[in-house]
Amino acid sequence: MNPNQALWEKGDFTQIAQTMRKSGEAFVAKLGITKDMYILDLGSGDGTTAIPEAKLGATVLGVDIARNLVEAGNRRAKAEGLTHCTFQVGDATDLHELNDQRFDLVVSIFGAMFAPRPVDVAREMVRVTRPGGRIVMGNWIPGDPTLVAQILKISAAYTPPPPEGFISPMLWGVETNVVDRFGMAGIPKENISCVTDTFTFTTDYPPSQLVDMFKTYYGPTMNAFEAAEKEGKALALHQELLALFERQNSSSDPGKTAISVNFLRVTVTR
Score class of each variant (00 low, 15 high):
residue 2 N to R: 08
residue 3 P to M: 03
residue 7 L to Q: 12
residue 7 L to G: 07
residue 8 W to Y: 10
residue 11 G to W: 02
residue 12 D to L: 07
residue 12 D to S: 13
residue 12 D to K: 10
residue 14 T to P: 09
residue 14 T to F: 07
residue 16 I to C: 02
residue 17 A to R: 08
residue 19 T to S: 05
residue 20 M to G: 02
residue 20 M to W: 13
residue 23 S to G: 13
residue 25 E to P: 01
residue 25 E to C: 01
residue 27 F to K: 01
residue 35 K to V: 14
residue 38 Y to F: 11
residue 42 L to K: 02
residue 46 D to N: 15
residue 48 T to Q: 09
residue 48 T to A: 13
residue 48 T to N: 11
residue 49 T to G: 04
residue 50 A to Q: 07
residue 51 I to M: 05
residue 52 P to H: 14
residue 52 P to M: 14
residue 60 V to M: 06
residue 62 G to S: 14
residue 65 I to W: 00
residue 66 A to G: 03
residue 69 L to Y: 02
residue 71 E to S: 09
residue 73 G to N: 04
residue 73 G to K: 02
residue 74 N to V: 05
residue 74 N to Y: 05
residue 74 N to C: 09
residue 76 R to E: 14
residue 76 R to S: 10
residue 80 E to N: 12
residue 81 G to N: 05
residue 83 T to C: 03
residue 84 H to R: 14
residue 87 F to M: 12
residue 88 Q to K: 15
residue 88 Q to Y: 06
residue 92 A to V: 01
residue 92 A to Y: 01
residue 93 T to Y: 09
residue 95 L to N: 05
residue 97 E to D: 11
residue 100 D to M: 11
residue 102 R to S: 15
residue 102 R to Y: 04
residue 103 F to L: 08
residue 105 L to M: 14
residue 108 S to W: 02
residue 116 P to V: 07
residue 117 R to F: 15
residue 119 V to T: 11
residue 122 A to N: 06
residue 122 A to D: 05
residue 131 P to Y: 12
residue 131 P to A: 12
residue 132 G to R: 13
residue 132 G to F: 08
residue 132 G to C: 13
residue 134 R to S: 11
residue 139 N to W: 00
residue 140 W to E: 00
residue 145 P to I: 03
residue 150 Q to M: 00
residue 152 L to P: 02
residue 152 L to H: 06
residue 153 K to G: 00
residue 154 I to G: 08
residue 157 A to H: 12
residue 158 Y to L: 09
residue 159 T to S: 15
residue 164 E to D: 15
residue 164 E to R: 13
residue 167 I to T: 15
residue 168 S to Q: 12
residue 169 P to Y: 01
residue 171 L to E: 02
residue 173 G to K: 04
residue 174 V to I: 15
residue 177 N to L: 06
residue 183 G to K: 12
residue 186 G to F: 10
residue 187 I to M: 05
residue 191 N to E: 10
residue 192 I to E: 03
residue 192 I to R: 02
residue 192 I to S: 06
residue 192 I to M: 07
residue 194 C to L: 08
residue 194 C to F: 06
residue 194 C to H: 03
residue 194 C to K: 08
residue 195 V to S: 10
residue 196 T to V: 13
residue 196 T to L: 09
residue 198 T to A: 12
residue 202 T to K: 14
residue 204 D to E: 12
residue 204 D to Q: 14
residue 205 Y to R: 13
residue 207 P to F: 09
residue 211 V to I: 10
residue 214 F to T: 02
residue 216 T to L: 13
residue 216 T to C: 11
residue 216 T to A: 11
residue 218 Y to C: 03
residue 220 P to A: 00
residue 223 N to M: 15
residue 226 E to S: 14
residue 226 E to C: 06
residue 231 E to Y: 07
residue 234 A to W: 03
residue 236 A to E: 15
residue 239 Q to C: 07
residue 242 L to W: 01
residue 244 L to N: 02
residue 244 L to T: 00
residue 247 R to F: 01
residue 248 Q to C: 08
residue 248 Q to W: 07
residue 250 S to P: 07
residue 251 S to K: 04
residue 252 S to N: 14
residue 253 D to F: 12
residue 253 D to R: 13
residue 254 P to R: 12
residue 255 G to C: 10
residue 255 G to N: 15
residue 259 I to R: 03
residue 259 I to C: 04
residue 259 I to Y: 08
residue 262 N to Y: 05
residue 264 L to F: 00
residue 264 L to S: 02
residue 267 T to K: 07
residue 269 T to G: 06
residue 269 T to A: 10
residue 270 R to L: 13
